[in-house]
């Protein structure tokens, strides 16, 4: 009961308030006038940048979900082998995750611009630089975290099963793909869920690394919503409408992904 109350007050009410605001024109949340679905029409009009941001975000998410998970898994495999200094390396790889996004964004901005300056350009020169810069940044930050989850998963895989597979004549590769990975599916579920939603909702890193440059070409959804809300007078409602659409997209994608990977999990 108290939990329901807290849920109502701190989640459901603000959410409904936000939903209501997306159908209004307002300056501050106190005085709003109803405009129907006008905000949604504007949000999807060509010059609002929302569609571009959506395409860019989807591309970014696909690339980084795959790269983060593959690399994190390989690192986890490596760091569950009996090597010297394993704990030290685990800590080192996990560290970037503890640094705030804005700081990371600025650090990488300096690093990437430093490298690109040898070619006489900088990160604002082309949207591709911004895109790959964001991918590198995302990998650098998320790999350590995902690696820890995979390590935990790997350590709980039943050694007996793998040994049994080897006795049955399975190669290392076969044992990996047919025994280890299937019993790791719960870790895969949680890791893809985290990387997927985090990539979709990326904001700080985007703001600090490219700020959307060149033009608005590297603006992701969250940054586009922020710019719409604060950058244009009278567009606050449109920003709100975009935020609602954003919520629907993130929720749908995340639920779909959970359903798909869950169905691949096996009971041992």
């Amino acid at each position: 009961m108290p939990l329901t109350l807290a849920f109502l007050v701190f989640f459901v009410l603000p959410f409904l308030g936000g939903l209501f605001l997306s159908f209004t024109e307002f300056t501050t949340v106190e005085d709003a006038s109803f405009v129907g679905i006008g905000n949604y029409v504007k949000a999807f009009s060509t010059d609002s940048g929302f569609i571009n941001a959506l395409i860019f975000t989807v591309k970014f998410t696909v690339v980084s979900v795959i790269s983060v998970n593959v690399l994190a898994f390989l690192l986890a495999l490596l760091l569950t082998k009996p090597l010297k200094g394993v704990n030290f390396f685990r800590t080192v790889f996990f560290m970037p995750n503890l640094i705030g996004g804005i700081v990371l964004g600025y650090i990488w901005n300096v690093i990437i611009n430093g490298v690109l300056s040898y070619f006489g350009v900088d990160i604002t020169f082309s949207a591709d630089y911004g895109f790959w810069g964001l991918v590198i940044l995302m990998n650098w930050q998320m790999i350590g975290y995902m690696m820890i989850i995979y390590i935990a998963g790997l350590q709980s895989v039943d050694r007996g099963l793998i040994e049994a597979a080897h006795i049955d004549g399975a190669s290392h590769m076969k044992a990996l793909f047919h025994v280890t990975i299937p019993s790791l599916m719960p870790s895969v579920t949680i890791c893809t869920f985290l990387t997927l939603t985090n990539s979709f909702k990326l904001f700080d890193q985007n703001l600090a690394l490219t700020g959307g440059a060149p033009g608005r070409e590297t603006s992701m959804l969250a940054l586009d919503i922020y710019d719409t809300f604060y950058g244009r007078i009278g567009w606050q409602g449109v920003g709100q409408a975009k935020a609602v659409v954003f919520f629907v997209i993130v929720a749908t994608v995340a639920l779909l992904q959970l359903y798909l990977t869950r169905s691949k999990e096996v009971e041992v």
Partner: peptide, 15 residues
């Protein structure tokens, strides 16, 4: 007209 106008013009100048 708006901050967006200025930002767009600024990024055009950069390009």
């Amino acid at each position: 007209p708006s901050q967006i106008f200025k930002n767009n013009f600024g990024s055009n100048l950069l390009q």
